[in-house]
């Protein structure tokens, strides 16, 4: 539960608060829990509810304080084809192979917490919590094309972070093995 909250909220203190609030709310609502779902998924339901409330509040703050960064939606390529004119960066390892390794996903969760605030909010709401495009746009006060740009940047940032940290981690393991 703590990981779930922390990855999405990026703050130890807030994640801890939310977990605590979840338990408190669960205790108060004990009678209503009828054992239809497992205790874990019941608690996760409460946690998600609180988390989304928090994300909404955070989105409202970001909306007020942020200025619109320049987008790539005005390039000709974007207008004609719906993609920007530059190519996404190449990977230095085969990502699909790496997906099979559990350790990779721990690096992934670390990288999620390193995205900047706006990207993190957009990515968390849209991709991790599965909120609809309309809903996320409304919360962040942006147009759909613009959300798309933010998400693309978030994915790019994630990719760069994954690559760097995964290679670093693997190099460490290899050196360790060589030393032993």
């Amino acid at each position: 539960m703590f990981r779930y909250a922390y990855v999405r909220l990026k703050s130890h203190a807030v994640a801890e608060d939310i977990v605590q609030e979840t338990f408190l709310a669960a205790m108060k609502a004990k009678e209503r829990y009828q054992g239809r779902s497992s205790e874990r998924s019941w608690l996760m339901g409460i946690l998600r509810h609180k988390l989304i409330d928090y994300l909404r509040k955070a989105a409202r703050e970001v909306k007020l304080e942020d200025v619109e960064p320049e987008g790539f939606e005005d390039t000709l390529m974007f207008k004609e084809v719906g993609v920007p004119h530059w190519r996404p960066p190449k990977w230095h390892f085969n990502p699909r192979k790496v997906f099979e390794q559990k350790e990779f996903w721990d690096v992934f969760s670390d990288c999620l917490t390193k995205l900047d605030k706006r990207m993190n909010l957009a990515f968390t709401m849209k991709e991790l919590e599965g909120m609809s495009t309309e809903e996320v746009c409304q919360e962040l006060g942006v147009e759909p094309t613009y959300l798309w740009v933010i998400l693309y940047r978030a994915r790019n940032g994630l990719k760069a972070c994954l690559e760097k940290n995964w290679l670093k981690k693997n190099k460490g393991v290899k050196e360790l093995n060589a030393a032993v």
């Binding site: 703590f2 990981r3 779930y4 990855v7 084809v81 719906g82 993609v83 920007p84 190519r87 996404p88 990502p95 699909r96 997906f99 559990k102 996903w105 992934f108 969760s109 991709e127 991790l128 693309y152 994915r155 994630l158 990719k159």
Partner: peptide, 28 residues
């Protein structure tokens, strides 16, 4: 034309799905 770009988007959507599964199933 759009292949390289959209392959990347698809790959990252796959990555996210894998991650959510990992989060559910494996201890932190």
């Amino acid at each position: 034309v759009c292949g390289p770009f959209n392959r990347f988007i698809m790959l990252m959507q796959d990555a996210k799905r894998h991650y959510l599964k990992h989060e559910q199933e494996d201890p932190p």
